[in-house]
Design a protein around this nucleic acid. Structure first.
Length: 790
DNA sequence: CTCGTTGATCGGGCACCTCT
DNA sequence: AGAGGTGCCCGATCAACGAG
């Protein structure tokens, strides 16, 4: 993007600060092409390999057998689909060739009987996230490889031999399918049956509110599984149970553990100590790029407050482009409630768009440009209360006098669902319009109530509050008198009234100025619009990322590690270092493994409160000893996030090892079958250093050593065994330092351990402006900037 | 009282998007 | 290929109303 334009996108998305990975991602997308058919792909060696791999995988799975096609049987066709899979930094992960059946040639009851696919609703996904954040449940993500291949076919299906197969040219032969493959109408159902059977066997129950949600409750413990075809999200309050579930699934299917939830259905999920942040930043930028709006002048609101009527009424000769654009905007509303009303308004003209409507879409795009990283915060408010807001704009549509209903609902203080929809009937009064909005909000609230009942162990007994700014409508809702004669409204009336009378919901009055659902019913002036958005906790991902960066003061040039690794480290995702050890492996599902799983649970619960956890379980030889230590300056929430990640990651990285250690920026965790408490662990020291050199290395080294020795003394005599401090070198440079021991050491051992590390400094960090040495029992850090987080 | 007109509602079909 | 979502269009259906 040229800097000569008036509003370069850089100032809006801050490429320089955050998006190195994304920049290369965009570059990669530009430079790679996916073939559209077999003839094209056949010429390219990378795709030939991809197809061969897929055929081997299908063969290994015994997907089909080659038979002579019996008389009177038809085959379904098949074709190849080619996709390049990217890593998050934009490099190519692999070329993936996919064989799909042309299922549309199948006819009902001959080739298949029933279809169904397990697809989670977006509303469910957001509710689950809010509940998880509020109840401190860690969220994990798993991915089933070739999910459909696990499903077994009940019907007899024959498929053409795929292009590229060695027997392709044999006449009269066909593939008799034994397992489901992509494209067959019954494949999703076969997979769903198989997966739900596995979950039920493990004690899970299907939720009535969303068939793709499974819950296992057992004496205070709860584990939740959400399925989107072959993407699985797992959460709950019992780490041991979750780990057991992962293993159970792993035994049954070929499953990839993706660790903490980060990227789900095209939605970016960032985890921080404050909670979760979901956005579609990548999607917005792609959209702006595609429409050439990267350099456009940003707008404050998605719709002009003064005139929403189209200017130029010339019809478009080709509405396709307009329709595509609006479709994409609709998908964007998953994380952008702020454009919900505008998009719903614009989409009313999909069938006959004009030039004026193009201007409206432009306006939305310019609004998006002002803040591409805007999304929704899921914060921890320590409750799971449901509340709702309902509003309507009476006869707001100038063409057919219909009204617009709008509502939004919160769970645990976080915005989870909302809707802006033109009502299907003409309301005779503002009260009636408002009342319809209340009715649709009520059914949403009831749905949420059921969902939450399935998700949590306790339910508040107080009625759900549905705020409304029309007193007449509230009056109708709570009093059994009929104002209207028309039949259709009476049906709605009964519904809301019944819920009010049964004390399931209540409808308190709210001033129009505080009506949050306003943004879903009309275009608003800038100030009102932004005030309401502030209540939604929608904020810009850019700000979020920068603040996270600043709290650690990392910049890309500081360390030998690459920027991408550091960014992940800052967000608490990837370990700095791990090491698996132990003389022999333990047996799967044996007593050692049981103890180890319990130990991880113990550490997860005990560590965050004090920053240090120690636990020992079982009798030798199956005794397992473990400890977790968070950096002294890290908050208990960050500590918890880090320990959760560490315990899950170490079990994965060192699957059968009797001993292991894992080190993150914020915490370390280790376990062993040997009893190591109270002993200095010299086995492993991990070093990192700043690549910049001090101007006077001799005196800098000396001053660093002096500061760290002081801190080592202090740490050894304080109960937390942690000390941090700074030293003014007299010049412009200040040295900040930190020293810490695991609290199982004696005071003198702590001192010895730290002195040992300080003695090691010349080997890594001679004359360097920063350095870190992390060992199993103690660690030291020094930098020339303040790295302590508050 | 009956018939025909009018206007509104409902459901099925289509478009578009996305995800797997 | 399936599923989910949004919307409009169009024909069938029904209630309300006025004319004969």
């Amino acid at each position: 993007v040229s800097t000569a334009v008036a509003h370069p996108i850089q100032s809006y998305v801050c490429y320089n600060n955050i998006s190195t990975g994304f920049k290369s991602f965009l570059a990669a997308i530009d430079s790679h092409h996916e073939p559209v058919n077999y003839i094209e792909a056949q010429k390219l060696p990378e795709w030939q390999t991809a197809m061969a791999e897929e055929l081997v995988a299908l063969d290994k799975n015994q997907t089909w057998e080659i038979v002579t096609l019996p008389e009177g049987k038809r085959t379904v066709g098949c074709r190849w689909i080619y996709k390049i899979k990217y890593q998050s930094d934009g490099t190519i992960e692999r070329h993936k060739a996919h064989l799909v059946a042309k299922g549309y040639t199948q006819t009902y009851s001959i080739d298949y009987n029933e279809t169904f696919a397990p697809v989670a609703k977006m509303n469910t996904v957001r509710v689950l996230m809010s509940v998880a954040v509020n109840l401190d449940w860690p969220l994990f993500q798993m991915d089933v490889k070739n999910a459909f291949l696990h499903g077994e076919l009940e019907e007899e299906v024959y498929m053409d031999i795929p292009p590229g197969h060695s027997l392709e040219t044999q006449p009269g032969k066909a593939c008799r399918l034994k397992k489901a493959i992509y494209g067959l109408k019954q494949s999703p159902r076969a997979w769903y049956v198989k997966l739900s059977a596995a979950l039920m066997f493990f004690g899970f129950k299907k939720s009535k509110s969303d068939y793709s949600l499974f819950v296992k409750k057992c004496s205070g413990s709860i584990v939740v599984v959400l399925i989107y075809v072959d993407d699985i999200v797992i959460t709950g309050n019992n780490l041991v149970e979750i780990e057991k579930l992962k293993r159970h699934l792993n035994q049954k299917f070929d499953i990839k553990d993706l660790g903490q939830l980060r990227y789900f259905l095209g939605i970016e999920v960032e985890t921080s100590s404050k909670g979760l942040f979901i956005s579609q930043r990548k999607y917005v930028i792609d959209l702006l790029k595609e429409t050439g709006k990267l350099a456009a002048k940003p707008a404050d609101t998605p719709m002009d407050y003064n005139s929403k009527f189209e200017g130029d009424t010339t019809p478009l000769s080709d509405p396709r482009q307009f329709q595509r654009l609006v479709g994409k905007l609709i998908y964007l509303t998953i994380t952008r409630p702020d454009i919900s009303y505008t998009v719903s308004y614009i989409s009313q003209f999909l069938h006959a768009p004009t030039l004026g409507h193009i201007d409206s879409v432009d306006r939305v795009l310019r609004y998006l440009k002002a803040c591409p990283g805007k999304g929704i915060w899921m914060k921890k408010n320590d409750h799971t209360e449901i509340i709702g807001y309902a509003d309507a704009d009476w006869a707001g549509n100038p063409f057919d006098r219909r009204s617009t209903s709008g509502f939004c609902t919160f769970v645990g203080g976080n915005l989870v669902t909302w809707k802006s929809k033109k009502q299907s009937v003409v309301a005779r009064s503002s009260v009636e319009a408002e009342y319809r909005a209340m009715a649709s909000a009520t059914s949403e609230l009831i749905w949420l109530r059921h969902l939450l009942y399935d998700l949590t162990l306790r339910m508040p007994v107080t009625p759900i509050k549905l705020y409304c700014d029309n007193q007449a409508a509230i009056h109708i809702a709570s009093n059994p008198i009929f104002h209207e004669r028309t039949k259709h409204i009476e049906v709605d009336c009964h519904f809301v009234r019944e819920k009010v009378q049964r004390k399931i919901i209540m409808t308190p009055y709210i001033q129009s100025e505080e009506q949050l659902a306003d943004v879903f019913t009309k275009a608003l002036p800038k100030n009102t619009f932004q005030n309401i958005l502030a209540n939604f906790n929608t904020s810009n991902l850019v700000h979020f990322q920068i603040s996270t960066m600043l709290s650690s003061r990392f910049t890309s040039s500081l360390y030998l590690l690459s920027f991408a690794v550091l960014l992940q480290t800052v967000l608490g995702v990837d370990p700095l270092f791990h090491s698996c050890s132990g003389n022999e492996n333990f047996t799967a599902n044996g007593p050692y493994e049981t103890n180890l799983n319990k130990l991880m649970g113990n550490l997860y619960y005990t560590t965050p409160a004090t920053g240090f956890g120690l636990s020992s379980l079982g009798q030798s030889p199956n005794q397992v000893n473990g400890l977790a230590l968070c950096r002294g300056d890290v908050s208990s929430t960050d500590c918890k996030t880090c320990v959760v990640e560490a315990s899950s990651e170490i079990l994965k990285l060192c699957p059968q090892n009797m001993a292991a250690i894992i080190i993150y920026d914020y915490c370390l965790l280790k376990y062993s079958n040997e009893y190591f408490f109270g002993k200095i662990d010299n086995s492993i020291n991990f070093f990192m250093w700043n690549t910049q050199n001090a101007s006077d290395p001799m005196s800098f080294n000396q001053q660093t050593k002096g500061l760290l020795s002081l801190l080592a003394n202090e740490a050894s005599i304080t109960p937390k065994m942690y000390a941090a401090g700074e030293l003014d070198t007299g010049g412009s440079v200040k040295i900040y330092g930190m020293a810490q021991c695991t609290r199982d050491l004696s005071s003198s051992d702590c001192k010895n351990c730290l002195d040992g590390l300080i003695g090691d400094l010349p080997s890594c960090c001679d004359g360097k402006l920063g350095g870190r040495v992390i060992g199993g029992s103690c660690n030291i850090i020094y930098e020339t900037y303040s790295f302590i987080s508050d």
